[in-house]
Structures are given as structure tokens and as C-alpha cells.
Simulated scan of single mutants.
Amino acid sequence: MKDAIPTPPPVYSIRHAYRHHAGPSGYHRLGEWIGEPVRLSAPMYWLGETLLRVPAKLVSWYGGHFEYSRHDFVMEAQTLMHMRRHREAIYHFLYAEKSFKLLAHARGLNGHRMAGTFHHPQEHYSWLFRSTAHLRALDHAIVVSTQQVPFMETLVGPGRVTFIPHGIDTAYFTPADAPRADRPLRCLFAGSHLRDIARLPAVIEGVLEAVPAAEFLLISYDRRCEGMTRPGKVHWRRAVPDHEYLELIRQADLLVLPLIASTAVNTVLEALACGVPVVTNRGGVADYLDPACGIMAEPGDVRGMISATVELLRDDAQRRRMGQAARDKAMQFSWPRIAEKMNTLYARLS
């Protein structure tokens, strides 16, 4: 736990760490700088594994809430007990699409306020939820891209949605001390969620045709990447340990990340913090990039992705300038700065 920022009212967070995120990444890291976690007690864990196991599974299976699991059911039960013991606090669901459902019925209990952060793009809500009525019970919604604001206001209510950027640990993700001079120019692709894997082969083909000395490293659970490998040119790793992942980002010359859609993208923030310029597709991620540190093609624009990547691979000076600008940009999203923005919102809600 870092030196947490004091909050005007007590703030308790309901957290979740996704396994596909790098250990030092993910939105749950916000809780290290502000608020206290609601912790699952040993008795509640036992109940979740025994008496509550079947009802929790039934709620998760038939509740019309795609990401909601039996573990979320048990955590909501724990949070309800916590809310009954405290008064006039703020409860922040850090992944509200996943972990907020039944507590909609606890709105106003003991003078508490409930807030939730939303991460998915609008297009996902048709399969995430059978009904979004429970979201009206939130006192406020936080979104991680400005594109989400209009849609979320239709679900939560006008004036009850605030954009606060996703953060990044700029003390962990840092630029390399010195670039390696004994290797080809390297383009890095990482992740699976909302990645445009279908168009990635065409991007790779176009870039390697124009810059034969370049290479691609693909880090992804998506096994389609295995079919893109070429000896000495395109390498695939299904997963790597956190310490190795950090070094692979640091040693990349570019992050080349075709996206179908986006809000905040951890991989983009990680690359920026490591001083690596970004080539990607326009979307919610535009809130985290500007022309000084990244180039954005329109979604589905393979030619635009190839052109931007080739341009930067051929211009060492421009890449260096953009790398420095990338690090400067990332500092705007350091977790302490994001926690201060969140604290301002908490004060408004109290």
C-alpha cells in the first residue's frame, strides 16, 4: 500500500485484478493510492465455497450479466455487511461492469454513496447486460474515455458521469537506460482484448515489405498470432513474466497496435511510460495520445497503419523525439495524479 491520499469522506473500493493484465498494470492499482479495500473475510469465503456456492452460481449464470461471477456475488454480500457497519462513506466499484449488480438495492443505505468505473466501449453493452436498470442506482459513474460519456449518461443519468483517465505506474514502467544497438528495428504488438487480429497480418506484411530490416514481436494469448510467425522476422510469445515483459517493451522501437475499438488501453500506457511511440487506431485511446507521441489511423485502415509505421521506422530522429514525448505524456497519467483527480470527485459526492 502506498501513502494513500486522505479522502474527505471514507472511501472503500471493491477491486478485481484481471489475470491477463501485467501484474503492475490494471485499474485495481488505483486502490494503492486512495481509499481502502473491502476485504473478503475468512467466514464469507467459507460461505461462498459452501452454502452460498449454488445460489451464487445461479445468480451469475441466469442474472443476465455477462462478467458477473459467483465470486462477485460473494464480494457483494461482503460489501453489504461492510456497508451496514459504516455510515456516510463512498463505495467505489473499480470494475463496475463486472462487480456491481445486487447492491443496486442498497442505494442510500446508511447515507452511503456508490460510484463505479466503466471500461467497456458502448458496443459491448448489448452482450454484457440483459438489462442495465441496476446502473441507475449508482450515484456516479467514472469513465476512462470521453467517448463513453454520452452513452453512460443515458444509463446512469445526466450530469452523473465524469471522465477521469486510467493511470499507469510511471515508477515501474520507465524507459531503457540505453537502447540496444545490435538488433533489428522492432515493432511490438501485445494483448488480445479488442485487438484487430484479423488485420494484423496485412499490417505486418506491408511493413516488412517496405522495411525488410524490421521485425515484429507478438505477445498475445490469441493463437492466431502463431500462424503469423516467420523465422527471424515475426516472433510470437503466448505469455511472458512481468519482468521480461517490461524489458521487451523498453527494447521496442514502436508499439504497433491495430484496434477494433478502445477506451483506455493498458498496453498503450505501458509503452508511453517506457518512452515508446505508438501507432494504433483512433477510438477512446485518443484521450491518451497526441501527434507528438503517437499516430492514429482510422479503425480498419490497414494502409494508414502501414504508412505510419514505415514512416517512423525510417526516421530515427523522429522516433527519438516521439519517445521522449511519450514519456512526458505518460507522466500526466501517473497514479498519484489520477488519485488526486479521483479525490476531487469524491469530495463532490460527499
Results as ranks from 00 to 15, higher is better:
Asp242Tyr: 10
Asp242Ala: 15
His243Cys: 04
Glu244Asp: 14
Tyr245Asn: 10
Tyr245Phe: 15
Tyr245Arg: 13
Tyr245Gln: 11
Leu246Asp: 08
Glu247Phe: 04
Leu248Gly: 07
Arg250Asp: 01
Arg250Ala: 02
Arg250Ser: 04
Arg250Ile: 02
Gln251Thr: 10
Ala252Gly: 04
Asp253Tyr: 12
Leu255Ala: 12
Leu255Glu: 07
Leu255Gly: 07
Val256His: 02
Val256Asn: 01
Leu257Ser: 14
Leu257Trp: 12
Leu257Ile: 06
Pro258Asp: 12
Pro258Gln: 08
Pro258Ile: 13
Pro258Glu: 08
Pro258Lys: 12
Ile260Asn: 13
Ala261Met: 15
Ala261Cys: 13
Ala261Asn: 15
Ser262Val: 06
Ser262His: 03
Ser262Ile: 03
Ala264Phe: 14
Ala264Met: 10
Asn266Gln: 15
Thr267Ile: 13
Thr267Pro: 04
Val268Cys: 14
Glu270Leu: 05
Glu270Gly: 09
Ala271Lys: 09
Leu272Phe: 03
Ala273Asn: 05
Ala273Arg: 09
Cys274Glu: 06
Gly275His: 01
Gly275Met: 01
Gly275Gln: 01
Val276Met: 06
Val276Ile: 15
Pro277Tyr: 11
Pro277Trp: 09
Val278Gly: 05
Val278Asp: 06
Val278Cys: 09
Val278Ala: 07
Val279Ser: 05
Thr280Phe: 11
Thr280Asn: 03
Thr280Val: 09
Arg282Ala: 11
Arg282Gly: 04
Arg282Pro: 01
Arg282Asn: 02
Gly284Arg: 07
Gly284Cys: 10
Val285Asp: 05
Val285Ala: 10
Ala286Met: 11
Ala286His: 10
Ala286Val: 11
Asp287Cys: 13
Asp287Val: 09
Tyr288Thr: 02
Tyr288Asn: 03
Tyr288Pro: 02
Tyr288His: 04
Asp290Ile: 13
Pro291Gly: 04
Ala292Gln: 15
Ala292Lys: 12
Cys293Pro: 14
Cys293Leu: 08
Cys293Asp: 09
Gly294Glu: 05
Gly294Thr: 03
Ile295Ala: 13
Met296Glu: 15
Met296Gln: 14
Ala297Arg: 06
Glu298Lys: 11
Gly300Asp: 12
Asp301Val: 10
Val302Cys: 05
Val302Thr: 14
Arg303Ser: 14
Met305Pro: 00
Ser307Ile: 00
Ser307Asp: 15
Ser307Met: 06
Ser307Val: 09
Ser307Tyr: 03
Ala308Asn: 01
Thr309Pro: 02
Leu312Lys: 03
Leu313Lys: 00
Leu313Ala: 01
Arg314Asn: 08
Arg314Phe: 01
Asp315Pro: 01
Asp316Gly: 07
Asp316Leu: 10
Asp316Asn: 11
Ala317Thr: 10
Gln318Ile: 02
Gln318Cys: 09
